[in-house]
Write a protein that binds this DNA or RNA. Sequence first.
RNA 1: GGGGCGGUGGCGAAAUGGCAGACGCAGCGGACUUAAAAUCCGCCGGGGUAACCCCCGUGUGGGUUCGACUCCCACCCGCCCUACCA
Length: 818
Amino acid sequence: MLIMSDVYNPQEVEAKWQTKWQESGLYRQTVDKSKPKHYALTMLPYPSGDLHIGHWYAMTPSDARARFMRMKGYNVLFPMGFDAFGLPAENAAIKRNIHPKKWTFANIERMRGQLRSMGAMFDWEREAVSADPSYYKWTQWFFKKLLEYDLAYRKLSAVDFCPNCNTTLAREQVWGDDRHCERCGTPVIKKDLEQWFFKTTDYAEELLDFSTIDWPERVKVMQTNWIGRSTGANVTFHTEQGDPIEIFTTRPDTLWGATFMVLAPEHPLVDKITAVAQADAVLTYREAAKRLTDIDRETADREKTGVFTGAYAINPVNNARIPIWIADYVLMTYGSGAIMAVPAHDERDFAFATKFGLEIVEVIRQPGRSDEDGPLTEAFVSKTEGTMINSGAFDGTPASEGVATVTAWLEAQGMGEKAVNYRLRDWLISRQRYWGAPIPIVYCPEHGAVPVPDDQLPIMLPDDVEFMPTGESPLRFHEGFLHTTCPECGKPALRETDTMDTFMCSSWYQYRYLSPHDDEHPFDPEEGAYWLPVDQYTGGIEHATMHLIYTRFFTMAMRKMGLVDHSEPMLALYNQGMVLGEDGEKMSKSRGNVVAPDTLVAQYGADTVRTYLMFFAKWDQGGPWNYDGIKGPQRLVQDVWEMAQLAYMPKQVTDEANRALRRKTHQTIRKVTADFENFSFNTAIAAIMELRNAMQAARRSSDVAADVWAEAVDSLLLLLAPVAPHVTEELWAQRGHGYSVHQHSWPMWDEEVAKEESITLVVQINGKVRDRIDVPAGMSDEELKALALASERVVEWLNGRSPHKVIVVKGRLVNIVG
RNA sequence: GGGGCGGUGGCGAAAUGGCAGACGCAGCGGACUUAAAAUCCGCCGGGGUAACCCCCGUGUGGGUUCGACUCCCACCCGCCCUACCA
C-alpha cells in the first residue's frame, strides 16, 4: 500500500482508491436476495465528447444517494451507459469527415475515463451502449414486438422537413420559437412521408394516472397537459347534399349557436364539396397553407384566414343552413379535422366570424346581460355561468348542466355521442438518418412490409458509407444494405432505410442494464424479477414530455407483451436543477462561461468538486457556479483530512464538554440522515460543517475524552463518505478500520444522547421578542408560562395588570398577549 | 393567452405557522510572518443610541392568526414549459 504524505494530495488519494475499488470489485452489483434491493438510476449521457459540469451535477448527488442507500443496508444497483445514436455524430461525419461510429466510440472511451474520475459507484460490467449491435439488436426486436402486439403501424404523414438541408428532422432538432433547423437555421416545413408510428395514444388514459408513482408535481402537470384530455361529444352534421361531417366539440350545449362550419384545408371532403365558383380561391388557399411553416400556422395571435367553399351544411339540431369554410386554424391532426363554429361562445370562432361577417347567435346568456346590451363584443366562454337561450326546448337550462343534458339528448336522437379526445399524438419514430438503429422491415413487391426474422437480427448498420453534404441518409444509396430478399417468398426486396428515433433506444435502457451481454433476451428475467422496477430515477426536467412519456409507454407495452408485470418503469423521480455559468446565464462556449470539470478535478480533486456541487444550492434548484464558493468545501475536506489524522490528546476533560460533543455528533447523524432521505444535500453538508466547527472548538480546548473525539471523527467520515468517497476511504483506512468505508453501515444516532439539555425560551409580548431565558429542557407548559410571567421584562411591561391571553409553544416560546 | 417554478444580507443560500438570515463565500479588524499566501481569533441586514436597548426589514398591497418568509386574495418582476387542440 502506498504511504500517503501528511499533506492532502487529492490526485494521489483519488487515483489510489479508484484503482483499488476497481481491482477489488467493490462496486459489482449482483442479485442478493438476502437484502432489500434498491435500483437507483440516473439518466444516461449522450457521448458528445466531453463530460461537462452538468453531467457532474446530475450524477454525483445521485451517486451519493445510491451510496447512502447502500450504507443503509440496501443492495443497490447503480448502472451507467451511453445513449450513443443521434444526429451530432452524423453532423461531425459530414463536417469533419469522421465516421459516426469512430467519433461516437472515441467519445465514449474519453467519457468513461472522465466518469471514472468522479469516483461514482457505477458497476461498469453492466454498462450498456445503445449504438452497439448487441444493444440495438434488441431495440429492433422491440420494434417487431410492438408490431406483433398491434402497437406499431405505418402511415403517410406530414413531418418536419428542412428545405435547406434537404432532410427531415427529429422533433428535438427543431429549435426555438420560430421552429428552425438546428443546423442551418432555416424554418422547417411539412412534408408528406410514409412513416412508422407507435400507438402511444392507446395508453393515453393510463398515462394520465400517476397514482402509483411518486413523481414531481411539475412533471405530472406537464405530462397531463401534453396528453391533453378533453371530454365532449362527437356530432354528425351533413352537407346539403347529404355527405356526413363528423365534428368533435367540448360544448355540445352551444350547438344551436353553430352558424358555420370550418374544415381543415387538408380535409378530404373539401374536394368534393367545393362549389365551382369557389374552386380557385379554395385551391389557392390550400396551396398557401401547405407551404406555410408551422410557426406561421401555429402562432396564436395571428389574424385568422380562410375561404368559403361555397357549400352549406345543415345544423342537425335546428336545421339551419350554415356555410362551410376552410381555415388553417382547424388542424387535420386533432379530432376529425372539422369543427362546428360557435362564434358567440368561442374566441377563435368569434374572431373568424367578425373578420368575415358571419352570423353570431348567442345561445348562452351571460348573467346580468340583457337584449338591450346590443350585440356581443367578445365571445362568452364560461362553462359554468349563464343560461341556455335560442336553443329550442333547452331554453332556460343552466349552462352548468347543458353539456350533460344535451349530450344525453343527442345520443337519444342518434345525432352524436359522448366522446373523449387527446392532444397526445402517436409517436413518430422514423428518421431519415444513418446513425440510428435500422428499422427491421423489408419491402416486398408481393408481400408488402415484412418484418425481418429474429435470427437475422441485428440488421447491422454498414460501415462503408458515404455521407452526403445534404445530410441525406447514405443507407438509401448503399446497394449492399438496400437489396435483400423477402423473408416470406425469397424474392428480391428492399430494406427500410429509415432508422429509429433515439428515444426508442433510451425507452428501455433501464432493462438492458440488468444483463447487457445477454444474447437470448432483452434482459435476464431473473435479474428483472429481483431488481425491477427502478426505485429512484433522477434527471433533468427537459425530458418531462418526451423520454419520460416514451419510457412509461414502453413499460406498459412490455406488460402487454408479458415481459414485465409492473406498469410503471420508475417508482420515484427527482429532477435536479441546472448549473449556470458564473454570470448566471446558461453555460455556452460562445458566452465563454463554461466550467470544465476536468480542470476543477485537477485543481481541487473530485471530492471537493462533488462536495461543492452538493452544497451550493438545493439540488432541484441549481444556480450559478462560483469559483470562490468552492473554497468552503475545499476547507471542509482539508479540515477533515487534518482532524482524522490528528493524534488527539485530551487535556482537561469535562463531562459537560463530552456530552456537548456527543450531542452534536448524534444530532448531526440524525440531521444528515433525514436530509439524505429528502435529497436536501446542501443542508446535510451544512450540518457536517457545523460538526466540523464543533470538533475544531473541542480540539482547541482539548476538553473531550479520546473516545468521544474518536466517535466524532468516525461519524464525520461515515457521514461524508457518500459525498467525498475517496478522502473518507483513505482516512478510514489510516484510522485502522476495515475496507471499505463504503461497505460500513450508516451510523445510528441515539435519541437520548442527541437530546438537548437546555433550551432558550423565547418570551414574546404581543408577538415581539422581549426576553430569552435559558431553561432546562422538558419543563411543562405551566412551568414555562410561570417563568415567562416572572421575567423582569414582562413584569415591567404588565405593571400589575394581568394578560388577556398567554400562548405556550411547547419547549420553545411563550407569547403574552395584552 | 394558458400552465408551472421562483423573488430572503454584498453573494450562494437556511428556516414542521413560533428567536429571519443556519452553513458557506466575499468583506472588515486583529494574531502569526521581513512580507504575502495559508492558517487562527473576532465582527459582519439597515437605521437610531454613550450604553442597556429601540425601530425597520423576507418583491408590492390587502387578509387570516396571539404570532406569517411560511397560509389566503390581488398585483409586479424573473425564469421554464406550452401554445388556434375545437
